[in-house]
Design a binder for these strands. Structure first.
Lengths: 212, 212
DNA sequence: GTCTATACAGGGATAGAC
DNA sequence: GTCTATCCCTGTATAGAC
């Protein structure tokens, strides 16, 4: 009588279906009917486990975030010099974003739609720890003289993360720019972007020598 | 009998109301009723001018893009050295994004939802020229030896624009990070970010000297 | 061109049996 | 916990008068 395929409990099936559909289509475009069908559960059953559509959505976001952050957390302290460690972190981070494209999109979408309120929630409950840790790593490097004394570690952290988000987000656009050669190679992009953040785009030593 | 306020034609009132509402709430969340109310026009009238909701939405996007790009086009060639010019461009660009927050959000949202197809349209019809021009400026600077020979101008262009988009997009989140001090000051952010892209975060001359 | 009125579909949520 | 059946509302779109 019961179907052959792995059934698990209804709740996890619902959450998984909801995550996929919300990420693909956004909050409004996904109906409870669609989720029920995808999860192979009756609609009423969803309402039994989740008070309403919003509660299900929040639960979905929450679950998605912890899994995403867990992957980031694996990065802690690794071997190598400062430059190598940062480059490796950036590359891993970008890969993580691309691997979890659905979740990334879901979060971006939610942020775009719910602005201020969600911003605070995300900052406090989700990204806060990870960001603070990255800043702390940079601060330690700064104390050791491994980066300039007059840069803001928080800004550097944001630029590393932000450049990765930019790649993910704008890729579909700059993929069609004739000048852009790195659209198909996240590794190349990450390497070049970190190089800029590390060394800048000016000729080396230029700022200390004369101009011509 | 006619109202005192500037009436203009129904079409432009509809487009303006639609732009505002779509930007604020997204495609699905905005009903034709709401647009009709905001534009002070009957719902049926909207359907008279636009075949359906999608057509109205596309018309809205198109109108928003040309006005946005027109402002960017004002930047062409300005006085000053390479570093100053780039810094000024970045600051203006960020200001432009913040001034046209609604349009920016609308485009981001659309890109997020319609991915590949829109990406191509945007690349070819909207951002292509502007991006190509920025790259060309950088290339000229590179030929003059004003920036490193081994950096990709397209990547630099993307990092300048991308760091501004990151500010706009992630602001509501990092505003609540205790480490971040620049959330309320786009000018400060722009200045610091351009500084990193120009000079890098490593101690000056470090890469050419010994390590300790 | 613009309105009122209305048809029609789909979505969120509940009741109550099993 | 899970289902079937149903209620009510909102939203898109159209018909037809002015």
């Amino acid at each position: 009588m019961p179907t052959e395929t792995a059934e698990r409990d209804a709740v996890s099936r619902i959450l998984e279906a909801a995550r996929r559909l919300f990420a693909e289509q956004g909050f409004d475009a996904v109906s409870m009917n669609a989720i029920a069908d995808a999860a192979e559960v009756s609609k009423a059953n969803i309402f039994h486990h989740f008070k309403n559509k919003d509660e299900l959505y929040l639960a979905t976001l929450k679950a998605a975030c912890v899994s995403s952050c867990a992957q980031i957390e694996r990065f802690d302290q690794s071997a190598g010099g400062f430059e190598q460690r940062l480059a490796r972190y950036a590359a891993e981070h970008l890969q993580n974003i691309l691997d979890n494209a659905q979740v990334t999109r879901l979060i971006q979408r939610d942020l775009l739609e719910n602005g201020p309120q969600r911003g605070r929630q995300f900052a406090e409950q989700v990204f806060g720890q990870t960001f603070a840790r990255l800043v702390e790593i940079l601060r330690v490097g700064q104390r050791r003289g491994e980066l300039r004394q007059d840069v803001d570690p928080a800004l550097v952290a944001l630029m590393v993360i932000g450049s990765n988000l930019t790649f993910f987000q704008a890729r579909e656009v700059f993929r069609h720019f004739p000048d852009v050669t790195f659209a198909e190679s996240p590794e190349t992009y990450s390497r070049m972007a970190v190089d800029i953040v590390l060394h800048g785009m000016l000729p080396r030593g230029r700022t200390e020598n004369e101009r011509d």
